[in-house]
């Protein structure tokens, strides 16, 4: 290995492609959070049917591998439903979002169950509606338990975004393979160094996610460290 670095233009290409990676990550994070909130709450529903459907979703999403799910959603289903022109980024987002939703739902269910039962009873006796109870009493307290595992899960999803290169999207991974093709054509550079640089790029992205979640945890801890749990506006909203 003569050099550990790539050329400047190759770095520029990789950083440009990481925009796609981050885009998919953010989209599937949003889809995943919504799914995990809905399913996580549904797992604790009083209705047997709702609980059953939520359990089936969680078992499916956690049982199937993200790569196979991606291939099914991105290749098989569009043909089956005659939507072959659907944008790839949407399909990739759905696949990764479902994957994240399955794991996230279990995190949120566990966190809600970890909030003392007296909190629920107190808010029922205060005549809060179920939605208000969840939004203003249970979830804020569950947040401190949710955040650390959610950070790890987000890093797992970042790792999952590398898979979209296999269904034909140009993310960091695909760009690396393009650069490798170029290297092979020019017969310059060594391949392990290229992939090592890509690994370091992913590592940096993961550390950024880690940092963001650490900041969020610190913010939540500061907010619930004594003092009023609700701001004036939130109190007003409940009234």
């Amino acid at each position: 290995m003569d050099s550990w670095l790539l050329s400047g233009s190759q770095y520029r290409l990789l950083v440009e492609a990481s925009g796609t990676t981050v885009q998919i990550l953010v989209y599937s994070f949003v889809v995943g959070i919504i799914l995990s909130l809905v399913v996580g709450v549904a797992r604790l529903s009083a209705n047997v049917w709702v609980r059953g459907v939520a359990l089936a979703f969680v078992e499916f999403a956690r049982g199937i591998s993200s790569i196979i799910l991606l291939f099914i959603v991105a290749i098989a289903l569009p043909i089956l439903f005659g939507a072959e022109q659907a944008p790839l980024i949407l399909l990739a987002t759905i696949a990764l979002g479902i994957n994240m939703g399955g794991y996230g739902a279990e995190i949120i269910r566990g966190a809600i169950q970890a909030v003392p039962k007296g909190q629920t009873e107190a808010s029922i006796s205060l005549n809060l509606s179920p939605a208000q109870r969840l939004r203003h009493v249970i979830l804020p307290q569950a947040l401190t338990i949710i955040l650390p595992p959610m950070g790890n899960l987000t890093i797992e999803i970042l790792k999952g975004t590398a898979l979209v290169s296999l269904v034909g999207m140009t993310d960091v991974m695909q760009m690396a393979r393009n650069i490798r093709q170029q290297q092979l054509a020019d017969a310059v550079g060594t391949q392990p160094v290229l992939f090592l640089n890509v690994l370091i790029l992913y590592f940096i992205l993961a550390q950024v996610i880690n940092l963001l979640f650490k900041l969020a945890e610190a913010a939540v801890a500061r907010r619930y460290e004594g003092g009023p749990a609700l701001t004036e506006a939130e109190l007003e909203a409940i009234r």
Binding site: K159, M173, A176, T190, L199, Y202, N210
Partner: peptide, 14 residues
């Protein structure tokens, strides 16, 4: 904290 897919390519290239 890095994707297995990239690691596989790395090992293959190595």
């Amino acid at each position: 904290s890095t994707p297995l897919l990239v690691q596989l390519f790395f090992w293959q290239a190595l």
